[in-house]
Amino acid sequence: MPHTARLDRATAATLVAASLMAAAVALIFFYVPSDVDQGYSQRIFYFHVPIALTTYTLFAWGALNAARYLWTGREDLDLKSYVPMHLGVIFGSLTLVTGSIWAHISWGTWWDWGSRELNTFLIIFLFYCAYFMLRFSVEPGARRSRYSAVYALLGVGLIPLSVLAVRIAQDALHPIVFRSNGVNMDGSMFLTFCVALAAMLSLAVSMYLVEMRGKRVDERLAQLRRLAQEAA
């Protein structure tokens, strides 16, 4: 039977992510005008906010799979919960670093301890960093999967709190872009933001698919080694 080359999901997602990323960078540097208030530094917004929203999405995705694991007991859902958490911490670190640089240029400080938005994000980030300490302190197996799933679910309640914090704290330095009466930016800025968000989300999807593939290969390899050693 002839073997037909087929584009796998991870490669397809990586190609989509690369194309969207190129489009986003082109729009950010060659199309969108500088903001009247913040000037050139406002361009950080097109990377920082999509990275932050991707972090929330990954944590929520991981928690959803954790809930599905607890509901069904399917083993693959444990890995499908762990990988988004792992990626969420990577994206979360980037959110904190890019946000601090933006804060420094806009507010003249690296961090504002009075901002509820920043502090609730930091709490979520640290909460999910501790997820790994819990996970790797328990022997692999059903117990570890169960503990990890419960912990992942506990943290997800903090996500809406973090998103709403900026609206609750009216005096915060952190700007509010998405209001109940619409988006607080012009059409070209909104288009650029949407493309950058799509790029970041597709990057996360491609990283997820690649990492899942790596974990599956690892598992199969370990299984083969056990079989070979038993047979030897």
Partner: peptide, 17 residues
């Protein structure tokens, strides 16, 4: 005229990513 420190900050953010 673009502020030089703003350009450096934008470059830092994109570079880190």
């Amino acid at each position: 005229m673009i502020d030089e420190s703003a350009v450096r900050s934008v470059a830092a953010v994109y570079g880190i990513a």
